[in-house]
Design a protein around this nucleic acid. Sequence first.
RNA 1: GUGGCUAUAGCUCAGUUGGCAGAGCGCCUGACUGUGGAUCAGGUGGUCGAGGGUUCAAAUCCCUCUAGCCACCCCA
Length: 419
Amino acid sequence: MYQKIKGTEDIYGSEMKYWYWIENKAREVAIRYGYEEIRTPIFEDTKLFVRSVGEDTDIVQKEMYTFEDKAGRSITLRPEGTAPVVRAFVENGMITHGFPQKYFYIGPMFRYEKPQSGRQRQFHQFGAEIFGSYSPIADAELILFMDRFLKEIGLIDYEIQINTLGDSEDRARYREALKEYYSKHLDNLCDDCKARFERNVLRLLDCKVDVKYVENAPKITDFLGDGAREHYQKLKRFLEQNGVQFVENPRLVRGLDYYNRTVFEVHHKRLGAMSAIAGGGRYDNLIKEIGGKEVPALGFAAGIERLILSLKAENVEVDEIGRNIVYVTYMGGDDVKIEALKLAEQLRKAGIPTGLDLMERSITAQLKHAARLRAKYCVIIGEEELERDVVIVKNMETGEQVEFEKSFVASGLKDMINE
RNA sequence: GUGGCUAUAGCUCAGUUGGCAGAGCGCCUGACUGUGGAUCAGGUGGUCGAGGGUUCAAAUCCCUCUAGCCACCCCA
């Protein structure tokens, strides 16, 4: 027997309503905020991700699905959504369309990680990007949009954390200071932190073991230049004045290298270790970095699987996916079956979701099946009705039955459904 | 990648010191043959995750692998 690949999921049945719910809300809210959908390929040139996400990041170091195609090109299944959108923006000359530009995407991402609940190797993200604005009003609007989306899918129990990483010069000075500070304690640090010290000092702030050193470590806020400081203060004020609940987390460092200034993460309080349901920030240098002009940008991405876990944790009721409202049942020979097919077709043409027995079961079994599908009405036709050009319409809630002349069934049912 | 727990029917799970593989739910059929959800009766359904080993005998004990879950790592 074949088994699905580790870390992948078949999505069907009672799970599907959550996907419809989130995807529909995502599209609806994004369009309300003036975002256009963009669909980029699922794989890209490996170099795009190495360059944008960062050579030293975990994603590039150990999590990418990279392979050679038949012509020897190095291809990578996208581990995140921003780099492809930026590539498309540059490659298609979208800069000529004027600023700001706002795009959203929904689709699968791939990272080779050890799976557990809320972490798959193929997972799905809803993300959004804004191109062109340096202003903190853009940061504020993006976070408002994300917050609005989370609220409208029904979530309450989450926390938005924000931080600033300053500009690259600020960060360089800060890194120096951190190195100096930690070099004194290097022997006492955990093994992970010793490695981080070499690879990425900022990550030391994330450590849950060496908490006592983190507390006394220098803070980025003391190293900010005027521009970054002002940007951060304005953003906080804009958010506060617009009723966005957030907390500052000076230790918030993100796993992708392209961020500067604003970064944020959203954590759901009822999830376990995989509590980050969304995250993002500003990346003013990325577009230039991968060969475009200097265009400021920012964005966020939310993990759909984790949103679903959050919805379930909060017992949010989501819309059921519509099923058959009407079910056509019949008893008799081929003449009756032909008529049943015609009837079902007529109803469907009229826009009514209609089921039809395909199993040639007894009328009892057909009605039983229709009841189980929670059809509101059954159309019943037999030899008798066929001869008289009528059908029976049965209300499945009340049990009432009425006869309809065949040509009026569709309009009659429509009226009954809409009342 | 490291450590721990787990894997039995479509789903949730029971299966004692090794001795004929079970229940509930679901699904199907029927309850005087042209009328549904309740009830009742019957039925369908398992390579006991895979492979090997020990044994007269393995779902049960041992080994390897695979997958899932939890924590770490990191992130969506």
